[in-house]
Nucleic acid binder design. Structure first.
Lengths: 359, 359
DNA sequence: ACCCTTGCCGAAACCGGTTTCGGGCGCGAC
DNA sequence: GTCGCGCCCGAAACCGGTTTCGGCAAGGGT
């Protein structure tokens, strides 16, 4: 039984095809194979094509570990999850990871994840993963104002992309992906105004995150476009989580001239409105209008369900993964900045203000 | 300025210490350093200690990639998340990852995660990660009956651990960690019975998972211990998710002799009871008693909150990570099997049956 | 006809580890 | 006093890649 020519691999258990195998079959030096596959200009076009074809036929994939020891890069993207962080984004995590790993896999990359409890621990994990060459760059979730993570990574010349946009005094040069929360907020105000609302409250999220200022600005822009005054008494900031969302709503409802519409910058906080409303004998979707932001699944199970601007966590993961890989490969920052729109999901928590008959 | 002796590393940016550096300082061959650190018996105890101390002082950590190319193992554990899977466990994901990565980090290992939409894709990911040596073994979430993943991994001689216990005709030899769901179920029945309930319904989860049979058996054991008959009319199986949980409850409530207590094998399904009850003018915690299982955060925000048997996802991750690493290092299967108790969290969804005054 | 580029590729060093092989040395046995 | 045997360790090969260096041949210019 002669070995079939071409050495085509079959079966699951077979050992890897190495660069030496390819070189032998192609009748060239292994250095030539390496250069041909990585697109080195020194190799003639004819030769490159021939080697590429042979490598593909033999199912050759360079072992990233072996590459890493010479090049320092192992085709892996890193993600450090803030475990002690507020759990607002946890429902998205699976989707986000799915997008990220899909983007990675489509380029033959993989994903290393770790968790850390706080910022110093996060920086340690960056360092460790980078030192071990188990991540060539990082995805940073939830961009913060004057983000210490970006400072550290820029200092160490490690590539990264931001989920969210950089902001703050020392605004770091960064690649990023973000949903246009400010547009959503402005549009939401417009929706309320179109229904006849004139007292529209805004409940903002964690002020250390850069999304906060953006969404707040969108709210204010929306008021201006609708010709409504900006009333500081209708604004609450730094509201994270359901309990805080309830307290914020309770405080707003307790005023002399309470709002009839509530714009929350996070769904999780928005869900706190239900109880605050019930405590005053009011019902969301009949007496009060509310719009949230994020699109968390729990919102769909409230009574009535929460209307919101949904963000596609899987898309975010995909885009961020793609941007990071391109960044690591050397693409300039300016070409690596994207926003996507948040899409309105009307579930029934909107209504006209109480004492208005029709529009 | 002479270079300080001992070559102690300082600062964040410094290049890695390599085995050659250590060998030079210790005045031995690098092969000796390698053997000393990996505990090879050929090295004298005195020498081993001396080299260990020097390596520690210089902050030397072997580059896993370089080891991997020779040994085939890169100190990484793999996790393939079923993205298309029912989202019941998603709330836990962050905690679970935190536990896994903590276990990995404590041994100097890392975690590679990917997602896949179905079983064949999952097997592909196993293969790819293994082939690329980016995972030395895998954690399998949600053990299934006659699990095709275990078959494939055993066949390929790849180490793995199971979250859940193996079950089925071809029960695979495996290492595992699991919470004692059957004990929780039996105990829950006892709680209901102690309150005076005699019609206790059981709503089981996905029948392809091995937890299903275990929890069902616990329910039946609980009935027996309480001296209650087993009534098939009180049992629903294959109920996954809130909507299905509602339908199951509605069907049970529509019978001639409806149950007064509901034991759900998953919290997510249990949350469906609230709407089914309201549709019949009943209120959970007053007219109906319910206990769930899992301990998802949403349960705490229902009205009244859902009493449940909580599982500690972080603990699960930690234990599974530890077991897998030991498995990869060659520990025998029999020593790598653990269960932990689920802990009862009383939040107020329990009550005596309606037409009973006191106990 | 000669020299100098330039294009293309082979040979070998190198990356940072592990593992095989063999040899020096100390020791006890004969 | 040898011989033989184990204990330790050095030297070198090896893993699977990348990269440097240099040489050969073809082509162009004078």
């Amino acid at each position: 039984m002669a070995i079939p020519e071409g050495e085509i691999r079959h079966g699951i258990r077979s050992a890897r095809t190495t660069i030496t195998d390819v070189a032998r079959v192609a009748g060239v030096a292994k250095g030539t194979v390496s250069r041909a596959l990585s697109g080195h200009p020194d190799i003639a076009e004819r030769t490159r094509l021939r080697i590429r074809k042979i490598a593909a036929r033999m199912g050759y994939v360079p072992l990233s570990q072996a590459q890493a020891i010479r090049t320092g890069r192992g085709r892996a993207i890193g993600l450090v999850i803030q475990a002690g962080d507020h759990d607002a984004y946890r429902p998205f995590l699976a989707e986000f990871l799915a997008g990220l790993s899909a983007a990675a896999a489509s380029e033959g990359w993989t994903l290393s994840v770790t968790t850390a409890d706080d910022i110093p621990a996060t920086l340690d994990r960056f360092q460790a993963l980078r030192q071990e060459r188990k991540a060539d760059g990082f995805v940073l979730t939830r961009a913060m104002i004057d983000d210490p993570r970006t400072d550290a990574l820029i200092e160490a010349e490690v590539p990264f992309v931001l989920y969210g946009r950089p902001h703050g005094r020392r605004r770091a040069p960064a690649a990023w992906f973000d949903f246009a929360g400010e547009t959503a907020m402005a549009e939401a105000v417009g929706r309320f105004a179109a229904l006849g609302h004139r007292r529209i409250a805004y409940v903002g999220g964690g002020t250390i995150y850069t999304y906060s200022a953006l969404r707040r600005a969108g709210y204010e822009a929306g008021l201006q476009m609708a010709g409504l005054p900006l009333d500081p008494a209708l604004i609450q900031e730094g509201v994270l989580g359901r309990a805080a969302g309830r307290d914020a709503a309770a405080a707003l409802l307790a005023s002399d001239d309470p709002p009839t519409a509530f714009l929350y910058s996070t769904d999780m906080a928005a869900l706190g409105l239900w109880r605050a409303a019930r405590d005053r004998g009011l019902q969301v979707g009949r007496d009060l209008a509310v719009i949230g932001y994020d699109g968390i699944p729990e919102g769909a199970h409230a009574e009535p369900p929460l209307s919101t601007y949904g963000t596609d966590a899987r898309l975010a993961g995909e885009r961020l993964g793609d941007l990071l890989i391109r960044r690591i490969r050397g693409a300039p920052l300016e070409s690596l900045r994207e926003t996507a729109p948040a899409t309105f999901v009307d579930r029934g928590s909107l209504c006209p203000p109480p004492n208005t008959s029709g529009s």
